[in-house]
Nucleic acid binder design. Sequence first.
DNA 1: CATGAATGAGAGTTCATTCAT
DNA 2: GATGAATGAACTCTCATTCAT
Lengths: 201, 201, 201, 201
Amino acid sequence: MGERSENKKQLIRDKARELFVERGFKDITMKDIVEACGISRGGLYLYYASTAEILKDILSIDASDTDEALAAAVRDNASPAKILEVFFEEQKKELTSSKESLYMASYELASRKDDSERERLKDQFEMAARVLEELITSGVDSGDFYCPDPRSAARNIMYAIEGMKINSAAFGLSEKEIDDELAFLYTGLFYPEFYEEEWEQ
Amino acid sequence: MGERSENKKQLIRDKARELFVERGFKDITMKDIVEACGISRGGLYLYYASTAEILKDILSIDASDTDEALAAAVRDNASPAKILEVFFEEQKKELTSSKESLYMASYELASRKDDSERERLKDQFEMAARVLEELITSGVDSGDFYCPDPRSAARNIMYAIEGMKINSAAFGLSEKEIDDELAFLYTGLFYPEFYEEEWEQ
Amino acid sequence: MGERSENKKQLIRDKARELFVERGFKDITMKDIVEACGISRGGLYLYYASTAEILKDILSIDASDTDEALAAAVRDNASPAKILEVFFEEQKKELTSSKESLYMASYELASRKDDSERERLKDQFEMAARVLEELITSGVDSGDFYCPDPRSAARNIMYAIEGMKINSAAFGLSEKEIDDELAFLYTGLFYPEFYEEEWEQ
Amino acid sequence: MGERSENKKQLIRDKARELFVERGFKDITMKDIVEACGISRGGLYLYYASTAEILKDILSIDASDTDEALAAAVRDNASPAKILEVFFEEQKKELTSSKESLYMASYELASRKDDSERERLKDQFEMAARVLEELITSGVDSGDFYCPDPRSAARNIMYAIEGMKINSAAFGLSEKEIDDELAFLYTGLFYPEFYEEEWEQ
DNA sequence: CATGAATGAGAGTTCATTCAT
DNA sequence: GATGAATGAACTCTCATTCAT
């Protein structure tokens, strides 16, 4: 498959993404995609055999891209606090652009009884939770963070972000709502000096 | 609409619920429901005009039922801590039975661009968040809870539960995972005596 | 399935038969049949799921009908010679009307690798061959026929008729060709008195 | 058309033959053949415009080959009995290898209303029947055979072989079944000395 | 109220055929 | 000669929806 072919696949993914973002996974038909791309009915089948195949391809390419910023921070030997900052920035980017998000589509894909996408989603969640936990642990070790239970904290953060994503996809969240919650999660990891002050009175 | 009619609608809702739980919203057809109910094709249309109408009816009836336990606790003038306990128990029930949940179906319904379901979902979330916030606030006032920011805490709880629900629906969560996170959320609202001890050294 | 339904199925079989006779099995599409019947696209599927199903139904109904004349002759305790006469008359009828025959269509159906129709055709051939053999044997016993090897004679008759049928279906046989061959087969079963005369000179 | 071209056509015929033998004529597509040959989609059209054209080419080349053994026997001035033996041997070869036969495919091709293949098949049958008739006649003249009606005998043999071929292609015949019938046809052409003996008692 | 036959729109999919390279 | 991407026609099959009974 040559460069031309890859360009065509890219076109298909781009147009299909718009449709998936707009209307989720299950409502999109091969015909919709054909029409969005301005190609022929049979032409689409030269590249993808089903809408599921297209969405999976999009998601797996996205997945490779997503972690890039974080990976860069890690490569730079940034401090845990810095890396966490990057992590939250990435999440905010995703959440605020979630009018363009594939979140619902990907969950619809996963909800199909027989689909391997379930596995992928679970793995992705577990991986992210574990990375976050390690990050917090190393932040605790370095004295940057206060956190008596990194595992629970990490998973709480993941669940909350997951919850925001679905809400964002389903009915929208204002930037303020997103900021407030992310700030709450972020600052929760630092020493609660205010307690000290309060108690010391 | 007579009693007989209402019985028939109930039958339709019951059978349709099973289908929605099993396969989400968008994959279910009027034909599926007709077959599940063992009624005639035309017969279904005497009661419901579309699968969306059926699901909305189910969801709105569920909504009336759901808050019953909580409302009872409030009616009994239970303490905020007690009411919160009931709230978390209800959430756990929902989460552990989520193989039978309409969660995905309801989000699929909401993901349709033109649907009023979006509004309903948002309202429901906001309402729950506000109730929870008030509960926490009153708990802080009564000295039961420690919480410097009830609004953020309430929303964090809501997001995290939302995140667990979607994960649970998409790929399943173990009872332990659910318990751990709910405990984390619940105990986070109580006085962190351990801080005191630590600081006082 | 009521009487109305059966009428509709009959209509479908009648129209489909014309098409199968005309163009064989594999060239006929559900669409062709729909158009020939003047019914709606989806309507046909209420009665038959595939062209193969339609053809099989036609063939099995035909099979019930076909043996009727023969069975009647047997019921009447006719002599073997009489029954054989009926048999050949039936064959001639089939062969001369073979512009309306499903012969090719049925072989096309059977030629599909996975089809149970193969079994049916083989069984039908074997059954007919065995009946014919018994008939000849009983004719020999009764002194009507001369035949040193009823089994081979029976099978030879079957093969020859089979060969005429396929030729008839593929490129047509004149009535004379049919008569000549049937006469050859038929008279071959009687005493060759002429030999006697010849040899005795 | 150069040698290279002829090689390519040969390749196409070889691969297409396998497909036709396996699945008959009508089920084979240009795409199937392209894939079996490992050539390009457009490439096939440089040589053949349709599956019918390919099959006709195969059949006509086969036809030239087929009669070679017989022709050789004739060239050698073999006796009618010898030539007939060769003829039956050839038929047996064809019948026993009929898993690799184009018989069904060729009849499917002929069953298409407008096709000249019908003509070819008829001509081929008539030609063979006439040759066989002449052979028998000359055998009678030479005293090798006994046959009061060479024309009918020849056609009977042809029909029976035709019948075996179609049965063989449709549902298979055992080697014994083939041998028995061929022996029946063959020995039927010789003097029935046994009659003599019987009568002379 | 209830039935289920009937319709027809529309999605999926496959291929013969063409054509620029 | 050869390639294979592209097109578009054709076919299969499914359902939402209607309507006569």
